[in-house]
Design a protein around this nucleic acid. Structure first.
Length: 222
DNA sequence: AACCAGGAGAGAG
DNA sequence: CTCTCTCATGGT
């Protein structure tokens, strides 16, 4: 398997992404919720608003958990879906505040932590995995819409979230830092390329460099 | 002025 | 299981 070559090509073509842009693990968690169907630029503004209100101090979820919902709504209005996101932020903060620290939460077995994250309102597969990888440094590969389109283009068939995740995790060394940068590069590839359709025939890198035969990939059946 | 952004949840078929 | 609708502001 030479899936690692795809990472090398992307890393050679684009600047280092340096994901996740955040100062603390709890900022990663909040940002993961705020970035739903929203440009990152607006998340940055919302994060500044929250910091001005001293709601993100000391990596402590309790400050956000105790804040009035109206205050949170004002802070995150610029990211859209603001009533929903404010409620989700407050509930998620309250959940993590039950732990002595975020580090204590991430000490759990990965699958157990993932199940707990998925039980929270507003945290689906991508958000849960983003939190595990970028806030907890767990070797979990994050799948998003861009990655699913890239899979369809490179491997020639549609993948479910779980299928795509298994594919990446089975064909790469279990390295959280690699997973972080690879996912970010796949997003960059998607942004520069076709947005809504599967990646088009013209690759932004060299011709056919991302094709399965060029990469030596074996397409998994079922 | 339509179209989309670093999704998730609820409901229908 | 796979659609489809909703949530909503900000930038091309």
């Amino acid at each position: 398997m030479r899936l690692i070559q795809m990472h090398e090509k992307l890393a050679a073509a684009f600047d280092p992404r340096g994901w996740w842009p955040a100062e603390t693990p709890f900022e990663v968690i909040a940002g993961a919720i705020l970035t739903h169907q929203t440009a990152w630029k607006n998340v940055e503004k919302a994060m500044e608003n929250l910091k001005k209100k001293r709601l993100m101090d000391n990596d402590d979820p309790l400050r956000l958990a105790r804040a009035p919902i109206e205050t949170i709504q004002e802070c995150v209005k610029c990211t859209g879906f603001y009533k929903q996101k404010a409620a989700r932020l407050k509930k998620t903060a309250a959940y993590f505040a039950k732990y002595p620290s975020l580090g204590a939460f991430f000490q759990k077995p990965i699958q157990e932590a993932r199940r707990e994250l998925l039980s929270l309102d507003g945290i689906g597969p991508e958000t849960a995995d983003s939190i595990l990888l970028y806030a907890g440094n767990k070797p979990v590969f994050v799948i998003d819409a861009y990655t699913l389109r890239a899979c369809e283009r490179v491997l020639g068939k549609k993948f479910s979230y779980h299928e795509a995740q298994k594919f990446f995790e089975k064909n790469l060394p279990r390295d959280a830092e690699l997973f972080k940068e690879f996912h970010a590069l796949l997003v960059e590839l998607g942004k520069r390329h076709c947005r809504t359709k599967p990646l088009c025939a013209s690759c932004p890198l060299e011709k056919d460099c991302l094709h399965s035969s060029t990469l030596g990939l074996v397409v998994p059946r079922q």
